[in-house]
């Protein structure tokens, strides 16, 4: 699609599991990302939500070309990023930047804020008007005092440190920012500041975000579209309203029902899932969610449900499948809308 700046197709990343020290034998593989496809549209925020171990952070590294995939492709403006030469990759890195979770460890404690935010210029060349001026400008853009350029990270609070990380990501005027849990280490009162800042910057600079987080409320707030991941796969994909108000995949429904809302009069009844997420080394056959799913039937163990728009009435799949008002891709044989909280 022409309006998609980033296209991910059938992306797979398996990590080998080895035993022994000298003669390493491969005894299995961790299927961290196992066939993920989506497109990121220009100027939008795509939320990627899932629990620990679902592969969302590995996906972030693949999108940044920090890991090579086992198979599949990531195309940035129609170029396959894994086919690029080193020089081309370096040029790509100007356009795709990253903001990380932990504002305490993602900044070098021995570098001044000015050096941290200015470091991209050491690799990619100084900007017009000089590095110092641009760094001061960047600090101002993210709401920090430009006169603090000579301070060190420990002299800032968690929220301010996350702003430093954002300023660094903005330095090269990127088009896409991959945000990996950018607000989860922050206090509630500060988290909202950083989310509002990200939204303002998006408007101002026309940025596209991939926003990875485990907090469903945060993802709803910031995203235009949302992909829900489970064990290395996307199980449901839709715009924010489709996913949150008309979820059709049982996993999405369980996730949403489990989030307590900050209003004592509106607590739903959580769908409590049995057990834990299975190991990605040996995921269940067929549908990966079937071991914890209350709708699972025989077909779920044999046929893997594809991520596709399922017609109302569940044509071809099952008697009670399908979505009612708001069709969007769902990887469940029995996809059916369920109001989670009235």
């Amino acid at each position: 699609m022409a309006d998609e700046i980033l296209q991910v197709e059938n992306l797979v990343k398996h990590f080998p599991l080895t035993q022994g020290i000298v003669f390493k034998r491969q005894v299995g593989q961790v299927k961290a990302v196992d066939g993920v496809s989506f497109g990121l549209r220009k100027g939008e925020t795509l939320g990627l939500v899932g629990e620990s171990g679902c592969g969302k952070s590995t996906l972030a590294k693949l999108l940044m070309a920090l890991e090579r995939p086992t198979s599949g492709s990531v195309r940035f403006e129609d170029q396959d990023v894994f086919a690029l030469s080193r020089a081309e990759l370096r040029r790509l890195r100007r356009r795709v930047q990253m903001v990380l979770q932990d504002p305490y460890t993602s900044l070098n404690p021995r570098m001044t804020v000015g050096d941290i935010v200015g470091e991209p210029f050491a690799i990619h060349g100084d900007p017009e008007g000089g590095r110092r001026r641009r760094v001061r400008e960047l600090l101002e853009v993210v709401g920090l005092d430009p006169d603090h350029v000579n301070r060190y990270p420990h002299q800032f609070s968690g929220g301010q440190r996350q702003r430093i990380g954002i300023a660094r990501a903005l330095a090269l005027r990127p088009d896409v920012i991959i945000c990996d849990e950018p607000v989860s280490a922050l206090d509630v009162s500060v988290q909202a500041q950083v989310m509002n800042l990200l939204a303002d910057l998006q408007k101002e600079f026309g940025l596209s975000y991939v926003f990875i987080a485990h907090d469903l409320a945060v993802v709803r707030h910031i995203s235009d579209r949302v992909a829900v991941m489970y064990l290395g796969k996307i199980v449901e994909l839709g715009d924010e309203e489709q996913i949150y108000d008309h979820p059709t995949h049982p996993y999405t429904q369980a996730l949403l029902s489990a989030v307590p809302v900050p209003d004592p009069t509106r607590q739903g009844t959580p769908i409590v899932l049995e057990g834990d997420v299975p190991s990605p080394t040996n995921p269940p056959s067929g549908c990966r969610f079937r071991t914890r799913c209350w709708k699972a039937r025989d077909v779920c163990a044999t046929d893997e449900p594809l991520l596709q728009v399922r017609a109302p009435g569940g044509a071809g799949d099952g008697e009670d499948g399908g979505t009612s008002g708001s069709p969007h891709p769902s990887a469940c044989h029995f996809a059916d809308e369920k109001i989670v909280r009235g």
Binding site: S157, Q191, Q193, D215, A217, H221, V259, P262, D263
Partner: peptide, 24 residues
């Protein structure tokens, strides 16, 4: 009041967040 105005909610669309300024 400020805390309640700064939490995003999973059950509400397009909720404007009003953060508390500064840090703890």
């Amino acid at each position: 009041e400020g805390l309640l105005a700064s939490v995003p909610r999973v059950d509400v669309r397009d909720r404007a967040l009003t953060p508390i300024k500064g840090s703890p």
